[in-house]
Structure formats: structure tokens, C-alpha cells
């Protein structure tokens, strides 16, 4: 285990060090101390290393991550794991707005609640939230899976393209062009796998599936109110 203490080392040194780890590195375990809400912690990583951040982070922790497994023991600020490509980001606490925004791959696990716009413009990332999510989540989501073990806020899946949304609790309201869909066996399989990978003790059968009604795919004046 190698340690970087943000109380004494600058952010630039933290990121430069973690970014310079190659795929075949021996130093696979890293610990970051005293994050104290700092922004852009462990961004742009591209190696299969494990990074544990002990505390709470500010904006964009784990941004554009590739390969790395990043674990935050506290809560995460806005835009955690934004545009993630691969790897894993796990947040023990809550996540602020825009969690997993535009993510293209990898797995984001939030053990607490996620705020508004969770999974906004998601493009292939898998997101598992054990608590609740806020309003406008998965807005314009294009691909990937968003799993919510608690409740979803207003306007879930507004203007959705092809992302799949699974919610166990209540949905305050669905956004434009988002509808409940039949949960078929292939969806239960996807869900079972995601819950297992996220370490969540829940049954796929307890969830409902939501997706795009595809009514906004080609312009129709009778749907103009939804724009």
C-alpha cells in the first residue's frame, strides 16, 4: 500500500503519480489521505490499480477513469466518475449531482443516495445506487444501465435514448418519453449480474424496468410539447 497525503502533497503530484502507473505496475494499491472535499481527485487514470480515498471528495472524483478501481470511503461531490470509460468507482456515502455523467463504461456504485441528474447523458456506464436518486436522473441517457435500489425523483429518464433504468422503490414522476417496460428474462439476468458485482443484497424480481418510448426519435408535431 502506497500513501499520498493531500494535506502535504499537492493535487498535481497525486494525479501525475497515479496517471503514470503503467498496466504492468507492481504498485497496485494506493491510499489517498485527507481529500477534504478537494476537486479532481484521481482523474484520468489508465491502469488497473486500486485507489482508496479516505474521506469525502469534491467535484469530478475519478473523472474519465479507465481500468482503475477507485473507492471513496466518504461522500462524493458533483460529477463523480464523469465520462468513465472502464474500471470501477465505489462511493461508500452519498453522491452529489451528475454522478456518472456521460459515462461510457465501467461500474459506478453509490452505497448511499445520489442527488439530481445521476447518469445524465450516460453512454454505456453501469450505475448502481443503493439509496435514492434525485430529479432529472438519466436525462438524455443513451446507453448503459442505471439501477436504483431506493426511490427515484422527478422526471426520471427524460428524453431517454436507449439506456435501461431499473428502480426498486417508487418513481416520483417519469420524464418525457420515458415509460415503464416489461421486465423480461434477459433484463433480470443483466440486473442479477449488476447487483452481484455491486455487492447489493436485492432480488432482481423486486425491480421495475423503465426505458424510452422512442416517440421523440423522429420529429412529430403532435409530440412538440415534449421538446
Amino acid at each position: 500500500m502506497q500513501t499520498i497525503d493531500l494535506a502535504t502533497q499537492p493535487l498535481r503530484e497525486l494525479n501525475a503519480t497515479l496517471q503514470s502507473q503503467a498496466a504492468q505496475t507492481n504498485a497496485t494499491e494506493w491510499e489517498v489521505l485527507n481529500p477534504r472535499g478537494a476537486h479532481a481527485i484521481a482523474v484520468g487514470l489508465d491502469a488497473p490499480i486500486d485507489v482508496t480515498v479516505r474521506g469525502s471528495t469534491g467535484y469530478y472524483c475519478g473523472g474519465m477513469n479507465k481500468q482503475a478501481n477507485i473507492h471513496v470511503t466518504g461522500s462524493a461531490g458533483p460529477g463523480v466518475a464523469e465520462n468513465m470509460m472502464s474500471g470501477t468507482v465505489v462511493i461508500d456515502g452519498d453522491a452529489s449531482q451528475y454522478a456518472g455523467a456521460t459515462g461510457r463504461g465501467g461500474l459506478l456504485v453509490i452505497k448511499g443516495n445520489a442527488s439530481s441528474r445521476c447518469g445524465i447523458s450516460m453512454k454505456g456506464i453501469d450505475i448502481v445506487v443503493q439509496g435514492n436518486i434525485g430529479h432529472m436522473s438519466a436525462f438524455m441517457g443513451q446507453a448503459g444501465n442505471l439501477v436504483v435500489c431506493g426511490d427515484a425523483g422527478d422526471a426520471l429518464g427524460d428524453s431517454l435514448y436507449e439506456a435501461r433504468l431499473f428502480v426498486r422503490g417508487s418513481v416520483k414522476s417519469l420524464g418525457a418519453d420515458c415509460i415503464e417496460k416489461e421486465m423480461r428474462s434477459e433484463h433480470l439476468e443483466i440486473l442479477r449480474d449488476l447487483l452481484a458485482r455491486a455487492g447489493v443484497d436485492a432480488q432482481p424480481e423486486e425491480f421495475r424496468r423503465y426505458g424510452s418510448a422512442r416517440k421523440l426519435y423522429n420529429f412529430d408535431i403532435d409530440n412538440a410539447a415534449a421538446y
Binding site: N15, Q19, H39, A40, G44, Y59, Y60, G63
Partner: peptide, 8 residues
């Protein structure tokens, strides 16, 4: 800041 950190 984030974009600068990612691109060094």
C-alpha cells in the same frame, strides 16, 4: 481544473 489535471 479537471481537464488540466487529466491532460497534465
Amino acid at each position: 481544473l479537471e481537464l488540466r489535471e487529466i491532460t497534465g
